[in-house]
Design a protein around this nucleic acid. Structure first.
Lengths: 359, 359
DNA sequence: CTGAAAGCGCTTACAG
DNA sequence: CTGAAAGCGCTTACAG
């Protein structure tokens, strides 16, 4: 029989084996308890002991096992982030903001996507709950049932609902972070009024979604303050997608006199409307004024560039992280209800000033 | 003293307390061990016992504590996903694909962003490692040092490197998933050759990045097969951003005869070039042909729509998840090196056919 | 200043 | 078919 090759000189007996506190303690001739105190920066430990232990940590390549510590302490360092889909830039930016804020506090983001499906949302939450998150940031799928969600999540894990209202139906309430939809649409409408428009449409969105209702409300408020009563055909319902918006553009011109401008439900709808106008031989920014909502990255580089309402989703993500961490330290405080500011982002420009040929 | 109000009739003594296997076992008059077997679907358990236990799970609202189970089994159900930034739609789609594939196997995505900073990457990885991931999917920050990363991560946790080459410098090697950059640029160039172009530029990217080198290589290959030797001024270096690309557009026309078409490093550069051309009074798709790379969502709706190389980042994400899970079951197999296919996505169209006024 | 002991919620041989 | 016991890697009173 051929001799087996000599074993390698390697110091680490098994590079795959985890280094534990016990390993470090043994190497230092100390107990696990003392080494643990070093780890957590306790002032009780003798400075020399501390130095020896820290050198040994480095020498062995010790990696803290947060899961084991969490189990013992009944704590948790994960925060679940459940959103519709990362391919929506609004949510991608929001997620980036959440992760940025959580990473800076030693927490980790546990990701989940619902794809706007209530059933997937149930499955995703059930799975994430098994990972024992310290909190959940949830942008609920359309059609979510608050009572069912409460039953699923229980009272142990704090939930921050983002962006879409959700009724718990049992008086427990949810923490809530939302954009100031009313104010945003109001700003957009005022901007068009200041540019001389009087016949202003509200274009896109589904009237039964809470954000659409709120944006329409802001639009109505601004018009009312200018003494204008919107005509029914100025309210155009359509799915909040570019394609549907392009298809519905003609609805704006069904009656004479037609609107000269539109506040759009969001930027996707606004960009679709611009394309739809072009197909009708009308040029946004020249024959017709368009204002969007969200300020997605494309808004700055579309043709023409889109004046819109900036909501800063990344800042909203940081804010959401902060709120859910705050809640996990004060579980018994009453529900929070935070409305985030929005602002008008002017560009040059989809929002033509009314002149002779528009009137 | 006033009497304290009667305590509520509530069944759950403390809604905040976690329900454990012991609670369920006690309620059923069984041991923790048997209840655990029910949980894991063991065929050993008596069907009646199983039914009783399952009812009790539901009644008490038991939630499996995966972290505790993982600790005991020395397993892990988290996969770390470390990318540049979610606000880049390419990575957002990739992340969505990773999460989609992981969720379907009971794993959870642990998110981390480097912001293209080597130092943040070190910190993010160190933090994620404490959460004991079963594997890491890493799109390395530019300028990453493979040997330093290997020292940080060690040999316990399998790493799949995505998108950018990384040298380990110690012979251990990394699993690797990348796009077929050579083939993609070759397809783009062939497409322009077939449309009659002969003077074709390669526009954008930094020559020292591996993906730029590979794309230039594909471009050169296609030209060589057509018997064309690219002139030095056809290679325009610029940062892979829209803004820089717009600024560099004029460089294409520094010499006469100028190129009639450009293969762009990526779509951001292509869209910037289109804008830069407009500023020079040239119309992409009419006076000059442009082809992109990546097929970001904007490519389909830009003006003109952009012909580009589709890389399907979501499918790449699913693939990455599958590869890293596969590795975690076969830790000793040799490193994998997977090149993902790409394809030409034609649109109508940034890629004008050469006719009289272009020649 | 340091150590022995108990315990977080689970799984897994092993015995019966 | 079910239970007693050990143990995953850590923390935390408590003693000394």
């Amino acid at each position: 029989m051929p001799a087996k090759p000599a074993s390698p000189p390697a110091a680490p007996v098994d590079a795959r084996r985890r280094v534990t506190l016990d390993d470090v303690a043994r190497a230092c001739g100390l107990s696990r308890a003392t080494v643990s105190l070093v780890l957590r920066g306790s002032p009780l430990v003798n400075p020399d002991t501390r130095a020896r232990v820290e050198a040994e940590f480095r020498r062995q390549g010790y990696v803290y096992h947060r899961g084991a510590a969490n189990l013992r302490r009944k704590a948790s360092s994960g925060i679940a982030l459940v959103i519709n889909d990362l391919s929506n830039p609004f949510f991608a930016e929001f997620a980036a903001g959440v992760d940025e804020a959580l990473a800076s506090t030693g927490h980790v983001t546990l990701l989940g996507s619902t794809g706007e499906s209530v059933e997937r949302q149930r499955a995703v939450l059930a799975s994430l709950l098994e990972h024992d998150p310290a909190g959940i940031i949830l942008s609920p799928a359309e059609g979510s049932d608050g009572a069912a969600l409460r039953r699923l999540v229980g009272m142990r894990t704090p939930v921050l609902v983002f962006n879409r209202e959700l009724d718990a139906d049992d008086g427990t309430g949810w923490d809530f972070l939302a954009l100031d939809n009313v104010r945003g649409a109001q700003l957009a409408t005022i901007h068009l009024l200041e540019r001389g428009h009087r016949r202003i449409a509200f274009f896109g969105g589904h009237r039964d979604s809470s954000s659409c209702r709120q944006r329409r409300e802001g639009y109505r408020l601004a018009l009312a303050q200018a003494g204008i009563e919107p005509e029914p055909q100025w309210l155009v319902d359509c799915a909040p997608t570019r394609l549907e918006a392009a298809r519905q553009a003609a609805a704006l011109f069904a009656r004479d006199p037609a609107p000269t401008a539109a506040v759009c439900y969001n930027d996707a709808v606004a960009l679709g409307l611009i394309a739809g106008l072009a197909a009708l031989g009308r040029r946004a920014g020249q024959d017709f004024a368009v204002v969007g909502f969200d300020d997605i990255p494309e808004a700055a580089v579309s043709t023409p560039p889109l004046t819109t309402i900036a909501v800063d989703p990344r800042a909203r993500g940081r804010q959401a992280a902060q709120l859910v961490l705050q809640r996990s330290t004060t579980p018994d405080a009453p529900p929070m209800h935070v409305i985030a500011p929005v602002k008008l982002q002017m560009r040059a420009s989809s929002d033509v000033r009314v002149d002779g040929n528009l009137q």
